[in-house]
């Protein structure tokens, strides 16, 4: 069994040093890894990334993140990733990584994801160049997530995104904006890539629990949704390590 701590949308700014680090004190006793589902910063600036790095540097366990739309706002996502890496935070975009926890291998595949909508109410790769670009971006990041999941050699697979793979966890948000909150292509990747758990953020007004069409549990860990510094999930069973 692996214990995963997860949160998204911490939205740290240059006004927030010292606000998040205290929440992580003792996290090593509770979890084996901390996954962050995007929107670590408020505007995606380097200065904010430095604040995030400072707040996460003290975590006693590995920290793995994906970026969110806020982290892209400053058009400096490469530098943001670099600053986070210096604090030991691994940022995934269409990539995976494997951690060994005791006898179990945990694989995490991460991608920001994108909007586009859900089956039956989604955008199409058709029409104006901007519309096509929008839908194609959604399909591309979903394909990258699928590839990353497929490439993982591990016992337990977890998909980490910022945007939602399912509408279930958006319940509470206005349905009109669902196409801006997630895409069913992400759920296809989660199911096809045989993930055991999918974590996302982005929808502050949504709800925590959902499931893909393929039955994979989905959790919206946006901080306003979970109402705590992080949510904790146990994945796998105790005897999995003996297999």
């Amino acid at each position: 069994m692996i214990r995963i701590a997860a949160v998204g949308d911490i939205h740290l700014g240059t006004d927030s040093p010292g606000s998040f680090a205290p929440c992580l004190a003792g996290i090593g006793d509770l979890a084996d890894v901390l996954l962050i589902a995007g929107d670590l910063t408020q505007h995606g600036s380097v200065a904010e990334a430095e604040v995030v790095a400072g707040e996460l540097a003290g975590a006693e366990i590995p920290v793995i993140a994906v970026l969110g739309n806020h982290d892209h706002h400053g058009d400096q996502s490469d530098q943001v990733v670099k600053v986070l890496a210096q604090a030991g935070v691994r940022t995934l975009e269409g990539e995976g990584m494997v951690l060994r926890v005791g006898d179990i291998c945990l694989g995490v595949a991460g991608a920001k994801g994108f909007g586009g909508g859900f089956a039956g109410a989604s955008g199409s790769d058709f029409g104006e160049p901007l519309m096509k670009a929008f839908v194609r971006h959604s399909k591309e990041v979903s394909a990258a997530l699928r590839n990353a999941l497929d490439a993982l050699e591990c016992d337990i697979r977890v998909a980490l995104t910022h945007y939602s793979p399912v509408p279930d966890t958006l319940a509470g948000e206005r349905p009109e904006i669902f196409p801006f909150l997630g895409s069913y292509h992400l759920a296809e990747a989660v199911d096809g890539g045989r993930a055991q758990l999918a974590l996302h953020g982005h929808a502050h007004g949504g709800s925590e629990k959902g499931r893909t069409a393929g039955g994979v549990p989905v959790r919206n860990v946006a901080r306003p949704v979970i109402g705590r510094a992080f949510a904790l999930y146990e994945v796998g069973t105790h005897d999995a390590c003996c297999s």
Binding site: R3, A5, C23, L30, Q196, L197, P217, R219, R223, P224, G227, R228, A229, F230, A231, L232, Y233, E234, V235, G236, T237
Partner: peptide, 14 residues
């Protein structure tokens, strides 16, 4: 202001 920090609870997902 979202300050309410409830103690963490653990959910088993499988």
């Amino acid at each position: 202001v979202s300050q309410q920090e409830f103690p963490p609870t653990v959910e088993s997902v499988s």
